[in-house]
Design a protein around this nucleic acid. Structure first.
Lengths: 129, 129
DNA sequence: TAAGTGTTACATTTGATATAATACACTTAA
DNA sequence: TTAAGTGTATTATATCAAATGTAACACTTA
């Protein structure tokens, strides 16, 4: 387990994708899953960068992206906080789910696999909740 | 419609992903869907490169990847041909489908969405076969 | 032999990513 | 008032994958 816990957030980074994107996704998932209280303060840019051994600019980029989703609110001089609006979280969660579903259906259609076959395949996959 | 037809193959390229990967995927899909006869000759590297306005090396990379899947067989001096072994095509198709399903389930789990909710979402998506 | 194939090998360019270092702006608490 | 802790911005640099440009080589077929 080469994952790093920083405050309420857990990170496991690799080289498969841009680092700023992975940081963004980890935090976004933590929020969407409800694994952290709304209103919680994120680690400071410098702190997270130091603990993940990343450049502050890289973390900044992830945080700004979160702000753009309105999943966080940044208060200059204070820090970046998870939104307290549960509705926003729910909307983002639904949007991400919808994106995933659409991308998935698209892949299956591209392969020429029909709906019922897709549903069968889905049933074959273990789903440890 | 900014897609380009070259022989039996249709391509629509953008900047979202590496070009060689898009070329690979288009051809792979065409084969997997059964939209082209087994044994068919692919456009020559130079020809496809010219028509798609790509560098021959970029097309080469896609073709070599296809060979690695055994979806094509390359005969030096003759060209690159789609395999005549339908079983190979079927195996690759299943492998790709499986990958897609696993990736999808993983996304949904990361969002904290359970199986039945996922199945419901899937039903909401239009599926023009 | 010539034309059409795939193949290989460079050098080069480009763009995204990431780092490094520094300075600035704001908030909070000592 | 000050110091420490926040986010923010800027500029330069480094790195890597992707893509291009160019050229040559090897093989097959007509």
């Amino acid at each position: 387990m080469d994952s790093i816990q920083v405050g309420d957030f857990k990170f496991r980074l690799d080289l498969s994708k841009p680092l700023y994107e992975q940081v963004l996704q980890h935090i976004r998932q933590t929020i969407a899953r409800g694994d952290v209280l709304l209103g919680t303060k994120l680690p400071s840019v410098r702190d997270l960068a130091h603990q993940l051994k990343l450049n502050p600019n890289t973390v900044m980029r992830a945080y700004q992206e979160l702000d753009r989703y309105h999943l966080t609110e940044t208060r200059r001089g204070q820090g970046t906080f998870i939104t307290s609006d549960s509705e926003t979280v729910e909307l983002v969660k639904k949007a991400l789910a919808r994106e995933a579903v659409i991308a998935f259906v698209s892949s299956m259609k591209n392969l020429g696999i029909d709906r019922s076959t897709t549903e069968s395949l889905l049933k074959e996959v273990a789903w440890h909740e």
